[in-house]
Every structure is written in structure tokens, then in C-alpha cells.
């Protein structure tokens, strides 16, 4: 009883989720088949949704699952299927700068970690309010209504832009393939 009570379940959840996130992210980068890569990406996103729950962001966790694990991953898989038709086993290779990039990335991680550890945060003693959706909805439609509408517009523009870019333009294609 004492053992179970003394365990900080939040911390356990964090470590488990964090391990999932890091491992699946590493697999995203490392596997040689791009479809597998996308699958591990989905795992990573779902784990992240769990992490958001530990941060009292239940609305965002839902959004994360729907938008990222659902829409984005499916879209990427569609993209892969449109352009790569054979030999998936070598569809996701490394280029020649892995070592030096690894060095830079290690430095980035160390620097960010060191800075966040060094910084003395002004931690707030308060808890996050329970009804997150209410609060976010109120803020988005009152104080942040203009960024909200702009974001909507951005999505529309992205939609149109993607259609135009990806549209089959036969004349141009034959021109440049020559």
C-alpha cells in the first residue's frame, strides 16, 4: 500500500509517455521505409496527446489525435503513394552529413536543456481551471478572434494553393521533362 501510494503516478505517466515519444520519434527518423516512418509518427502523435493530458490540456489532446494522428498522417501517406510506386524498403535514406548534423543536433539539445534547467521560472502556484474548452472557446471568439479568423483564412488559402500546385499541368510537365 505504502509502495503504491508513494508512487507519483503523474510522473510515471510522464516517463512512460516521454519514452514512447522519444523512441517513436527516433524510429521515425531511422527506419528505411517511409511508410513505417509515418506509422511511427502516428504513434508519436498519440503519445503526445497523452502527454498533453498530463498537462491538463484535454482539448488539445483531442485536437492532437484528430488533426495530427488522423488527418496529417493520412495525408502524408497519400502523398507517398502518389509519388513512390516501388521499392519502399529504400525510400527513406540518409544523406552524407549525418555525423556533423548529429554533432549540431547534440549541441542544440544540450544548449536547450541547459538553458531550461538554468532558468529560474516564475512558477505559478495555481492549478489549471477544469473547464478548458469553455475558456479556450471564449478567448478564441473574443480576445483572439482576429488571429482565429486569419488562421481560417490561412487554411483556405492553403487549400487553394495546394490544389493549384498539385494540379496536373500537362504542357508544363512535358516541357520541363524534356
Amino acid at each position: 500500500m505504502g509502495l503504491v501510494d508513494s508512487i507519483n503516478w503523474m510522473a510515471v505517466a510522464f516517463y512512460v509517455l516521454a519514452a514512447h515519444i522519444v523512441v517513436s520519434a527516433l524510429l521515425v527518423v531511422c527506419v528505411r521505409n517511409i511508410v513505417h516512418s509515418v506509422l511511427w509518427l502516428a504513434v508519436c502523435f498519440v503519445a503526445m496527446a497523452g502527454l498533453f493530458l498530463t498537462l491538463d490540456a484535454d482539448f488539445l489532446a483531442a485536437v492532437q489525435v484528430m488533426v495530427y494522428a488522423g488527418a496529417v498522417c493520412i495525408m502524408v501517406v497519400f502523398g507517398i503513394m502518389l509519388i513512390r510506386r516501388s521499392d519502399m524498403g529504400h525510400s527513406n535514406l540518409f544523406n552524407g552529413q549525418t555525423k556533423i548534423a548529429g554533432g549540431v543536433v547534440a549541441l542544440v539539445i544540450v544548449l536547450c536543456g541547459a538553458l531550461s534547467a538554468r532558468t529560474q521560472w516564475l512558477l505559478s502556484p495555481n492549478e489549471v481551471p477544469a473547464e478548458t474548452v469553455d475558456n479556450i472557446a471564449t478567448l478564441l471568439l473574443s480576445k483572439y478572434v482576429i488571429p482565429f479568423e486569419v488562421a481560417a483564412l490561412l487554411l483556405l488559402v492553403a487549400l487553394i494553393g495546394a490544389i493549384i500546385l498539385a494540379k496536373e499541368v500537362t504542357v508544363d510537365a512535358t516541357d520541363s521533362e524534356r
Binding site: 544548449l111 538554468r118 532558468t119
Partner: peptide, 26 residues
């Protein structure tokens, strides 16, 4: 990114006041 790293290091470790402001919010 190397450049970004260099700038971040310089800001973080040479000028504590502004670096703290920019990178830590404290």
C-alpha cells in the same frame, strides 16, 4: 543552425541580463 547555436550561446553566456530576458523569461 550552427549560426543560430552560436548566437544563442553568445547571448546566453556573455550577457546574462539580456540572455535571461530572451531565453528564460526571468
Amino acid at each position: 543552425f550552427l549560426g543560430v547555436l552560436a548566437v544563442a550561446v553568445i547571448l546566453a553566456f556573455t550577457n546574462p541580463s539580456s540572455a535571461g530576458l530572451m531565453l528564460g523569461g526571468v
